[in-house]
Design a protein around this nucleic acid. Structure first.
Lengths: 197, 197
DNA sequence: TGAGGCCTATGATCCAGATCATAGGCAAAA
DNA sequence: TTTTGCCTATGATCTGGATCATAGGCCTCA
C-alpha cells in the first residue's frame, strides 16, 4: 500500500537514499526543508517537544509513507523526525517535485489526495485524543486500525510506542490491555491484537 | 487574511451562496461531497460525535476559511459541519475546481499550500491535546493564537466554545481563566484575552 | 557468559480535571 | 414586560489516569 505512486517516474528516479540508525534524527524543527522523504523501510516518528519536556507524537510513518509533505510549502520544519528503528529513507528534491507539479496535473492531484488523506488521519487522531477513557481510546484505535478481517491490528512497534501514539502513559496502556484480555474483549498475540467479536 | 485567493476568478464567480442559521448543519458525516465551501461570514464547526456521545471539535472555521477541502478527494464527508452562529457560505462545485486544477498549476500549488497549512494546524492542535495541565493548555493556546502584538487573543466565540475547542470541560476552563486572571498572568477584556507580559 | 539496558508488568498513591449541583446575568423571544 | 434559555461562574465530590516504585524477562553487546 505504498502511497507515493503519484510520483512521476522521472522524479522517482532522482531519489537519493539515506540510512538512519534507531534514535537518529532525519531532521529537526526549525531546519529548512530540502525535499520530500519517502520511508523505504523502518519507522520514523514526527515529534514535537513541548515546554515541559513532554513528547507529542504527531505521526508515526511506516514503510511507504511520505514524510514532510507539508514542509514542501513551508520555510522550516515544524517538528522533529526521529527514526525509532533502523530505517531507510529516500529523498526527492523540492525543485524536482515542484517542477513535476508544474508539468503534470495528475501528479498534483494525486499529491493533493495524499495531503487530504493525511488531514483525515489527523482528524481521526484528534477525535481519538478527545476520548478520555483509556479503554475507549484503545477500542477506538483497534477499530480504526483493524486489518482486512476487521478485527486484527498489527502493532507497528512496541506496546510502549503505542502508548505514546495514543497519548497514554505506558502503565495505563499495559493495565488496560491486561484487563481487556482478562475480560476476553481482546486476544493478545505476538505483535498483534485481535478483537474477539 | 482570506486564504482562498488561489481560486481562479472563473471559479470564484461560479460560487453559490447559502445561509445557515445558528445550529444548522451544512453537511453531515456520510453524505457525499458536492464541492468546496468558503465561509463568508459567521462560524462553522467541524465535529465528530463518538460512541459515547461526546463531541470532538475538529476544526472551527472563521470568515475566509475553506471547509471540506479534504472531502474533494473523498467519496463522503467524514464529519459534521455545524454553524455555531448565523453564517453565510459560498459553494464552489467539485467539477469546476478540479477543472481549474487541470488547467492552472498555480491554482493547484496554492491549494496544496492550503492543505499543507491545515496539516500543520492540525498537528499543532494535536500537540495541544497532549498537554495535560489545563493551565498549560490555555497558555499554549494563547501563545499560538496571539495576534499581531504577540499577546492579545481575540476569542472567536464564547468561552464555552473555546472550552470545547481546547478539549476541556467549560468548568475547568472558567476556573483556569479566573485563576490566571487573579494571579495577573492574563487580563480578560470583552471578547479578548491579553497576556500580561 | 555476564552485564547493562529496555520493554513488559503490576502495585500503591496522588491529584487534576470531570462531573454534579447551584445561581446570577444577559439577551432574545413571547 | 415577562419568560425562557444559555452563558458565566463557582462550590463539592469523585474517579481515572499520571506518577513513583519495583521486578522479571529478553536482547544486545562486550
Amino acid at each position: 500500500m505504498s502511497q507515493q505512486d503519484w510520483l512521476p517516474p522521472a522524479v522517482r528516479a532522482s531519489g537519493v537514499e539515506r540510512r538512519l540508525k534507531a534514535g537518529q534524527a532525519l531532521f529537526r524543527m526549525g531546519q529548512s526543508p530540502v525535499g520530500l522523504y519517502e520511508l523505504v523501510s523502518g519507522s520514523v516518528r514526527l515529534v514535537r517537544v513541548d515546554s515541559s519536556g513532554r513528547e507529542a507524537v504527531l505521526f508515526t510513518a511506516g514503510a511507504g509513507d511520505t514524510i514532510a509533505e507539508a514542509s514542501l510549502f513551508s520555510s522550516s520544519y515544524h517538528c522533529d523526525a526521529i527514526a525509532t528503528t533502523n530505517s531507510v529513507v529516500r529523498l526527492y528534491s523540492k525543485p524536482a517535485i515542484i517542477a513535476a507539479f508544474e508539468r503534470d496535473p495528475k501528479a498534483s492531484q494525486a499529491f493533493m489526495a495524499v495531503l487530504a488523506r493525511r488531514i483525515m488521519n489527523l482528524r481521526t487522531r484528534l477525535e481519538q485524543r478527545n476520548i478520555h477513557s483509556a479503554r475507549d481510546r484503545v477500542r477506538h484505535f483497534l477499530t480504526v486500525n483493524a486489518g482486512a478481517d476487521g478485527r486484527t491490528v498489527v502493532l507497528p512497534g512496541t506496546v510502549k510506542d503505542l502508548a505514546a501514539d495514543l497519548g497514554l502513559s505506558h502503565e495505563a496502556l499495559y493495565r488496560t490491555l491486561s484487563e481487556m484480555a482478562a475480560e476476553g474483549e481482546i486476544e493478545r498475540l505476538k505483535g498483534r491484537i485481535r478483537l474477539t467479536s
